[in-house]
Nucleic acid binder design. Structure first.
Lengths: 125, 125
DNA sequence: ACGTTTTGTGAAACACGGCTAACTTTTAGA
DNA sequence: TCTAAAAGTTAGCCGTGTTTCACAAAACGT
C-alpha cells in the first residue's frame, strides 16, 4: 500500500525524535506533530501493518523500510528549509512550509532539482 | 473560509480555460482536471458561497477575489514547472509535480524564493 | 504496594473531496 | 419542433485523517 503524505510525516518525526532522544513513544510523536495521541495510535497501526514501523510495549521504531523513507523525507525537509532560509524566509516559516514541499516530488525529480541548485542539504536535526 | 488545495486547483483551471476559450463550463473544468462533473458541481457551489466564482446559466466565471488567487496559482505553477524542466524533468512529470508544489508556500515566501532564483516565469497557458 | 498520573487504545463522529447513479434541464440536430 | 444527446444537480456512499470521550494499562512517587 502506498504511503500518503501524513504517513511520511509520521515516519519522519519518528526518525527525528529517535536521533534526538533515542527511544520514541507515541506521545512524543503526537506532541511533535501537534496531533492527538489517538491519531498517532491509529496511524501507527496502519504503518505497522504495512511494515514501516514496529511497536514495542512502550515505544515505536522504524523498520528498514520505514527508515529509508524517513531519511529521504528528512533530507528533503532540510533541503527545502535551507533553500527557503537562503531566500530570506524565517526559520519558523521555512520549517512549516518546507514540511509540505517535501512530499511533492518523486525521488528522481528531487535529485535533479537538488543537483541543479547544487545545495548540500547535510544538516542534523 | 480558507481555500484548500483543491479549491485553488479549480480556480486555476477556470482561469486557464478562460484564457484559452473564453467561456468556461463545468464540464470543461471536469475534463481539464480529470474529475467527474458531480465533483465540479459540488466544488463550484462551495466556491460560489465563498465569493470566488459566480455561476451563470451555463458558465462559471471568477470574481475579482477568485481571479486574484487563480492568477497567483498559475504564476506559481509556471514557475515550478519551469524550474523542474530546467532541472531536467520531463514536461509531463514537471507539470504533475509542480501542480502540488504551487500550494505549499505563502505569497511572501514564494516571492522571496522567486527573486533568489531569479527566474522569469512569464509564460502563457 | 497502592493510588495517581501518564500513556495508549477503541468507538463514534466529523470534514473533505472524491465517486456512482439517478434525475433534471438545456442544447442542438433531423 | 421534438427528440436525443449533452450538461448540470442531487443524494448517497467511500476512504482518509482528523477529533473527542471513555476506558485500559503502565509507570512512578511516597
Amino acid at each position: 500500500m502506498a504511503l500518503r503524505e501524513s504517513g511520511e510525516d509520521y515516519l519522519e518525526s519518528i526518525y527525528v525524535l529517535s536521533q534526538r532522544q533515542g527511544i520514541v513513544r507515541s506521545i512524543d510523536v503526537a506532541e511533535y506533530l501537534g496531533v492527538t495521541k489517538a491519531s498517532v495510535s491509529k496511524a501507527m497501526a496502519t504503518l505497522e501493518n504495512n511494515g514501516y514501523v514496529e511497536m514495542g510495549k512502550r515505544d515505536v521504531h522504524l523498520t528498514e523500510r520505514g527508515l529509508e523513507v524517513a531519511r529521504q523525507m528528512w533530507e528533503r525537509h532540510c533541503f527545502f528549509v535551507g533553500l527557503l532560509e537562503d531566500a530570506g524566509v524565517s526559520t519558523e516559516v521555512a520549517s512549516q512550509e518546507g514540511c509540505h514541499m517535501e512530499h511533492c516530488l518523486s525521488e528522481e525529480s528531487f535529485e535533479k532539482l537538488r543537483s541543479m541548485l547544487g545545495r548540500d542539504s547535510d544538516r542534523d536535526q
